[in-house]
Design a protein around this nucleic acid. Structure first.
Lengths: 250, 250
DNA sequence: CGAACACTTGACAGCCCTCAACGTGAGTGG
DNA sequence: CCACTCACGTTGAGGGCTGTCAAGTGTTCG
C-alpha cells in the first residue's frame, strides 16, 4: 500500500506504447477524438495533452482524498478502485473503473479529489491536465460535449445503487454491469475474472462480505452462474439480467 | 397531476419579475454572471438566454422522463421534485430542488430527460436552452467552469445517500441538508416548513413512511426537534448535526 | 357534516448484519 | 517436498433494524 505520486509524463513509458490509434479506440474520449467534426489541429492538441503514466501496482495509491486537483485520467489498463475513508477508518468503495473509463471527474467541484483512487492490479493511465483540457474544450465543441456527457452520465450512475434493492438484485446488477463494461472492450461477456476482492464488492454494494458469499453460493446452486474463486461464468444470462433489470432500470 | 408542457417565454410573467439583479444573486449561475472576469457583452448574452417560465402549481409535471432534452432550468421559486417511475408504477424520488438550484443536468448524456420533474408547490423557473448555453460557455470561460462545477457537484451529491446508514442518520442528514440550503437563501436555518409529503421524504431516503414518522417522533421525544405537521424546528442542532455528520462526510 | 387524505401508532415478520469458526489457496522457509 | 503462515473466502447461529400490514387520529376541503 505504498504511496505513489501522480507521476508526470514518462518518455520511456510512452516509447513502449505501441499503436496509439488502437489505444484511442478504447478510450473514453474516442468519440471526441475521432468525431468527424473535429479539426486536425485540435485533435493534435488533445494528443499532445496526454501524459501516459504508470504502471501502478496492486495497492498503489494513484491519488488521495484532499490532493489538489489538476488532472483527470482515463484508465488504459487494469482496474482502479475509488473510495473514501471515514474518520473511524472504515472504507466506502465508490466505484470500480475499467479501461476506457475516466476518473477524477467528481473533483472538478472543490478543486480537490474527494476520494482515493487505488490500483487493484497493474494499472496504466492517460493523464489530462484539466485546466488545459478546459481551454481546449472551449475551442473544440466536440470535446466540450464529451466532457459534459461524461459528467452527466456519472450523476445517473451514482444514483443507481441508491435504491433499496435486495442483496440478490445488487449482486446481479453488479455482475451484469461488469460484464457489459468488459464486453465493450472485447472480452467475453459471460466468463470473466473479477479483479477485486469479495470485501470490495460487498463494500461497494453496501452488503456484508458474508452476504455476497451467500448470494453467489445461492446463484451457483440454482444454476444461474458458476464461480471459481474470482472467475465468474454467467450460465443463465436471462435470469441474471431479469434480477438486475429493476436496478439498472430496464 | 395535469400534464403541462415546458412553456416558452411568457412576457406577462416576466413583467412581474421585479428586481432582476436580486433574482440573479440567488441563482445557481450567480458566480458565473457576477464574476469580475466576465465581460459585459457575455453577461448580456446570458441574460438574453434566460426564459422565465411558470408558474407551475402543485402536482404539475415540468418535464417527463423520455422528453427530448434541450434546456436546463434554475428554480426561481418553489420546490421541484425529480423522480423516476418503475415499470410496476412504483416511484423513486431522486431529489428535491430549491430556489437557486439547477434541474436537468443529468439529461445532457442521452439527450432525453432521465426522470420526471414535478412541482411540489407554486414553482417559477428560469429556462436556459442548453445548445445555446454550450455555445456561450465556449466563449465565456467562467460559464464553462460553472457548468463543469455544477455537474461535478451533483455526482458527489448522488452518492451521499447510497451508504448503508440507519434511518435516524438518513433523516438527520435530510433535515440538515434542507436547513443549509434554505439558510443559504436567507431563511431561518432552525425553523422551516417542509414542502414535501412524508411519503416523498421516505421515498427519497429509501425508508418506509412509517419509519420516517417513528424517527421524527423519537427525535421529538428526546428533545432534538419539534415537529408540527410540516413545520420543523431544530432544537438541539449540535445533536442533529452529529447524527448527520457521517452521512455528509464531516 | 362527511369524505378523502396525510400522518401516526402498534404488532409482527423478514432480511441482512454481526460474531464466530472453519476451509482453502498462495507464498515462504526449512 | 512438506509444514507453516496468512489472507481470503465460506458457512452457521442468533439478533436487530426496518418493512409490511392494519387500525386509528387529525386535518382539509367540498
Amino acid at each position: 500500500m505504498s504511496q505513489v505520486p501522480f507521476p508526470r509524463f514518462n518518455a520511456r513509458a510512452m516509447a513502449d506504447d505501441g499503436d496509439d490509434l488502437q489505444f484511442c479506440s478504447t478510450c473514453a474520449f474516442s468519440h471526441a477524438c475521432l468525431s468527424q467534426g473535429m479539426d486536425k489541429a485540435a485533435l493534435m492538441d488533445l494528443h499532445v495533452l496526454v501524459e501516459h503514466v504508470g504502471p501502478f501496482h496492486a495497492g498503489d495509491r494513484i491519488f488521495s482524498e484532499g490532493d489538489a486537483f489538476d488532472a483527470i485520467a482515463a484508465v488504459r489498463a487494469g482496474t482502479v478502485k475509488t473510495c473514501v475513508t471515514e474518520r473511524d477508518g472504515h472504507e466506502h468503495v465508490l466505484g470500480f473503473h475499467f479501461p476506457g473509463e475516466v476518473i477524477g471527474l467528481n473533483a472538478i467541484d472543490g478543486h480537490r479529489y474527494p476520494c482515493d483512487a487505488v490500483a487493484l492490479d497493474t494499472v496504466m493511465l492517460c493523464r489530462f491536465s484539466f485546466p488545459k483540457m478546459s481551454m481546449l474544450a472551449a475551442r473544440v465543441p466536440g470535446l466540450q460535449r464529451e466532457l459534459f456527457r461524461l459528467l452527466s452520465r456519472d450523476i445517473g450512475r451514482a444514483a443507481l445503487l441508491a435504491g433499496d434493492w435486495t442483496a440478490d438484485q445488487r449482486v446481479a446488477a453488479f455482475l451484469v454491469g461488469v460484464s457489459r463494461r468488459l464486453a465493450a472492450r472485447g472480452f467475453s461477456p459471460n466468463r470473466f475474472q473479477l479483479t477485486m476482492a469479495r470485501a470490495d464488492i460487498a463494500n461497494y454494494l453496501r452488503l456484508a462480505p458474508e452476504t455476497v458469499s451467500r448470494v453467489l453460493r445461492r446463484m451457483q446452486d440454482t444454476g444461474l452462474l458458476a464461480v471459481d474463486r474470482r472467475e465468474v461464468q454467467l450460465l443463465d444470462r436471462a435470469q441474471v439480467d431479469a434480477l438486475a433489470a429493476p436496478v439498472l432500470r430496464e
